[in-house]
Nucleic acid binder design. Structure first.
Length: 517
RNA sequence: GGGCCCGUAGUUCAGUGGUUAGAACGAGCCGCUCAUAACGGUUAUGUCGCAGGUUCGAAUCCUGCCGGGCCUACCA
């Protein structure tokens, strides 16, 4: 079955300097939904996430914790693996930059860049802030009244530091990058980010320092082990390490170039400028698309550790339930925009969209079926216009969701599904199967069949977003496991099939009783 | 300083030249009673940031201004 179309989606590898927060959860969630959708749609999917474990910060943090860097990385990496279970993600692999195969890939890539003449030895010099661990250009610093020079942005003291460094000839790539963007308009999304990158590259590029000698926790530069590779060159390479690079006969190489790198908007330059330049220089095809999503704020406030308003995804799930959180994050905000996490909005979506509209639709239909149809899928009689209209709306959903997810428009995909949920609720009221029970049981059965069939189609498409809840609903419709992929989208419910007793899937969220004080 | 984007009902947004500007949530009223006190119908909301201009016609195009965001460059 090697003829199936592949789909390779990646999260950034997360820096183990930090514990997982809503931003990490959001990025991986988006990838998870795409991976699940594509699998159900018959694609040969590879979904990769992992951790970035090198760099001076890790080296220092490890020393402070009295651990070897590797032991420290091992420890922190675990919290990102735990998030996978907590959020029900479905990655095919979890990569770590400290794996031997990754060293091989980085060094092979480096050698290619060197062979191509895109790497040279120079000197990295600038105003260095020890506190920020960053170099600043002269203009970013200022000499204070005490005649000490400080970084304008952070106020930290800086000192002039020079160290030997290898450089990547990025300056030579601006024109070729622009040509690449031109030829691949889908490469950067959303559009506003694309404009940003274009104007950045049009402004000219400077060569990029790609090695350091001031610390040693990293991938050694081939032939000059005093240097370790710049963390971003190291980190980005993970995407091809996974596919076996430099061994293009590896079984996973078929997944390259990746269909999508999902990233936060803060690291767009690394993915949209540096990465394609590295790859083109090394003679490797660049990825097909980079999507930069936005940030969350918390009740209108910027999230920061110092404000203490960091959102812990595990806590969210404990409060509102896993699938409601997954739904909310992708439904509430047009994907690509910044979003505001509001407790009131979260509860609104949970109670309004999930409990009242969708959950209650399933419940009201299935309980009439249970009571009237002997616990079986009801019989299907002749269809009237109202029936075919609703069924047609449901049937059209697969193509709609497919189109929206090609563009990572999760919010629009969900809106389309919920349009049909609303349509189904109106149909229930219009057809009033409880009244038909007394006058025309056969017609009642047809109405219930139409509804059950509509719920089946909607729920098949809900699976990638809320896998657990969708499975429970499909169980209640007695849809066999083998008929939950989209290849069975048109395999209608068979009248007479035995059904289990219905059970609510999305309980309403009730405010915890206020503590009297 | 340059560039990009945004400012539309109480709220979140859709609408990018053409009849009385839409949706959802929230609010009021009515109906239903199968269902998780859920569902459906219906009503009301708006100087479409401000001011000019182009046009038979502008939320939509142009100019300026005000307000907000993002990217980027820095001044001597």
């Amino acid at each position: 079955m090697s003829s199936r179309k592949t789909y390779y989606v990646t999260t950034p590898i997360y820096y183990v300097n930090d514990v997982p927060h809503i931003g990490h959860a959001y990025t991986t969630l988006a990838c998870d939904v795409l991976a699940r959708f594509m699998r159900l749609d018959g694609r040969d999917v590879h979904f990769l996430t992992g951790t970035d474990e090198h760099g001076q910060k890790i080296e220092k943090a490890a020393a402070a914790a009295g651990l070897a860097p590797q032991a420290f990385a091992d420890k922190v990496s675990v919290s990102f693996r735990e998030l996978i279970g907590a959020m029900n993600y479905s990655p095919d692999n979890f990569i770590r930059t400290t794996e031997p195969r990754h060293y091989r890939a980085c060094q092979a890539l480096w050698e290619k860049l060197e062979e191509a003449g895109d790497i040279y030895l120079g000197k990295y010099a600038g105003w260095y802030s020890v506190r920020d661990e960053t170099y600043f250009v002269e203009g970013e610093t200022e000499v204070g009244p005490d005649s000490k020079r400080r970084a304008l942005s952070t106020g930290a003291e800086v000192e002039w530091v020079e160290e030997p460094s290898y450089f990547f000839r990025l300056s030579a790539w601006a024109e070729r990058l622009l040509a690449f963007y031109e030829a691949n308009p889908r490469f950067i999304a959303p559009e506003s980010r694309r404009n940003e990158v274009l104007s950045f590259v049009r402004g000219g590029l400077q060569d990029l320092s790609v090695s350091r000698t001031s610390f040693s926790w990293g991938v050694p530069v081939p032939g000059d082990p005093k240097h370790v590779m710049y963390v971003w060159l190291d980190a980005l390479t993970n995407y091809i390490t996974e596919c076996g690079y430099p061994d293009t006969s590896d079984a996973l190489w078929k997944f390259w170039p990746a269909d999508l790198h999902m990233v936060g908007k803060d690291i767009i330059r690394f993915h949209c400028v540096f990465w394609p330049a590295f790859l083109m220089a090394a003679g490797v095809a660049p990825p097909q698309r980079v999507f930069a999503h936005g940030w969350w704020t918390n009740e209108g406030q910027k999230i920061s550790k110092s404000l203490g308003n960091v959102i812990d995804p595990v806590e969210l799930v404990a409060t509102y339930g896993l699938d409601p959180v997954r739904y909310f994050l992708l439904r509430e905000v047009p994907f690509g925009n910044d979003g505001d996490f509001q407790r009131r909005a979260m509860i609104g979506r949970l109670n309004g969209d999930l409990a009242n509209a969708y959950g209650n639709l399933c419940q009201r239909v299935l309980s009439i079926v249970a009571r009237n149809c002997g616990g079986q899928v009801p019989g299907k009689g002749p269809l009237i216009d109202a029936d075919t209209a609703l069924l047609e709306r449901a049937r059209a959903l697969l193509a709609i969701v497919r189109t929206e997810l090609e563009e990572q428009a999760f919010h629009r995909a969900l809106a389309a599904l919920w349009d049909v949920v609303g349509e189904a609720n109106r149909y229930v009221d219009a057809q009033a199967p409880w009244a038909l029970a007394k006058t025309d049981p056969a017609r009642r059965d047809t109405v219930l069949w139409v509804l059950a069939e509509t719920i089946r189609r909607v729920t098949l498409l809900v699976q990638p977003f809320m896998p657990g809840s969708a499975a429970r609903i499909l169980d209640q419709l007695a849809v066999p496991e083998a008929q939950r992929a989209f290849s069975a989208f048109d395999a209608e419910l068979l009248p007479g099939t035995a059904l289990p007793a219905p059970q609510g899937v999305f309980p309403r969220y009730a405010e915890p009783a206020k503590a009297a004080s």
